[in-house]
């Protein structure tokens, strides 16, 4: 690496960006490049591995090592790379169809194994590259080319799925919130283990406005909870609401009526509370959606420090010879 300070531009390759104008992917690419510059990541030690889909073009635009692979398998490929190369900083770029439909099996097993990888899940709730079919995260009843009468399928609760699979880090952000996204990308990178960052990303062409309720300033207050460590989880038009536990059940209450210590204060390392956030808050259609670090298990380096030595010729010679031989 050159000794000069790298800027965001140094992480961009010479390839023309081929996403549709207005696509949320541009913002995510830009924030990622900015974060890499901020942490002065060595481009030669950084790898982006993607599957198939609009977002999976991402590695071509990065001046790092990269692989644009096959549909759903980036997580599996990155696992093999991780296991043999503990020295690299590896990012997986995937979409909702890529990681939760065709690659669902690899995603859950990656989370279970907790290999030290950063997974950026671009969720636009639609198949974009194949031109507009409903995805496993599309809202029920959505009308698309493959569901002209409305989809009957219920979407995944991505947070709950990740938590159920044993994820050690679960966070969510959104393409339009540049600062929040940067912060989440940094947190994702810092976590040792598999870090899953779901990024709501607007598909301008096939599912425009799917996340407007979280980006419009006024609607955002009603529809989004931005979690902050050690702060009361609050929401509502004027942040006037909070949760108070009644046994294990959280109840929405008026914040003003209770002292802060009686309200639910976010602790991202608390697995039980994370489980309630993922399984109860997130799945309740009456409640706002969660943003921020939902769960970050405190753990030491969980990357499997396997022995990456080359095979020794003497060892193999002894092995081939075995224990019982005879001479002729």
């Amino acid at each position: 690496m050159d000794s000069k300070k790298l800027t965001a531009r140094d992480y961009a390759s010479d390839q023309d960006l081929r996403w549709c104008p207005g696509c949320g992917d541009f913002a995510i690419l830009k924030q990622t490049q900015m974060v890499l510059a901020e942490i002065q990541a060595d481009p030669a030690q950084t790898v982006f591995v993607s599957g198939i889909g609009c977002s999976s073009r991402f590695p071509y635009y990065m001046n790092t090592y990269g692989m644009h692979s096959i549909h759903g398998r980036a997580t599996a490929i990155a696992s093999g790379l991780r296991l043999t190369r503990p020295d690299l900083n590896i990012w997986v770029i995937t979409g909702d169809g890529d990681s939760m439909s065709i690659g669902g099996n690899h995603l859950i097993h990656l989370l279970r194994r907790d290999l030290n990888l950063n997974v950026l899940l671009f969720n636009n709730e639609i198949y974009g590259l194949t031109k507009g079919q409903y995805s496993p995260t599309s809202k029920q009843h959505i009308k698309t080319k493959s569901s002209p009468f409305g989809s009957v399928e219920k979407p995944f609760n991505t947070l709950s799925l990740a938590f159920g699979a044993g994820a050690s880090f679960i966070a969510r952000s959104i393409d339009r919130e540049a600062k929040h996204l940067q912060e989440m990308l940094k947190r994702t990178n810092e976590h040792e283990g598999t870090s899953l960052l779901e990024i709501y990303q607007n598909c301008h062409i096939f599912n425009d406005g799917a996340f407007e309720q979280f980006t419009d300033r006024k609607a955002q207050k009603l529809n989004a909870i931005f979690l902050r460590q050690d702060e009361v989880i609050s929401f509502g038009e004027n942040n006037e609401k909070a949760f108070r536990f009644d046994g294990l059940s959280p109840r929405a209450v008026d914040k003003a009526n209770y002292p802060a210590e009686e309200l639910w204060i976010h602790d991202e390392s608390d697995a039980l509370k994370a489980s309630i956030l993922c399984n109860w808050v997130e799945s309740n259609p009456e409640l706002p959606k969660l943003f921020g670090v939902i769960y970050a298990k405190k753990q030491s380096n969980n990357a499997r420090n396997m022995d990456s030595d080359v095979l020794d010729e003497r060892y193999v010679n002894d092995l081939i010879k075995g224990r019982k031989t005879w001479s002729v």
Partner: peptide
Amino acid sequence: HGVQTFQAEDEIAAACAAIGASFGGA
């Protein structure tokens, strides 16, 4: 002794992980 085995979640992951390892120089 320089051999890593990976019992994958399925046949596809087994092949893909080997490709990832090969990309990394194994």
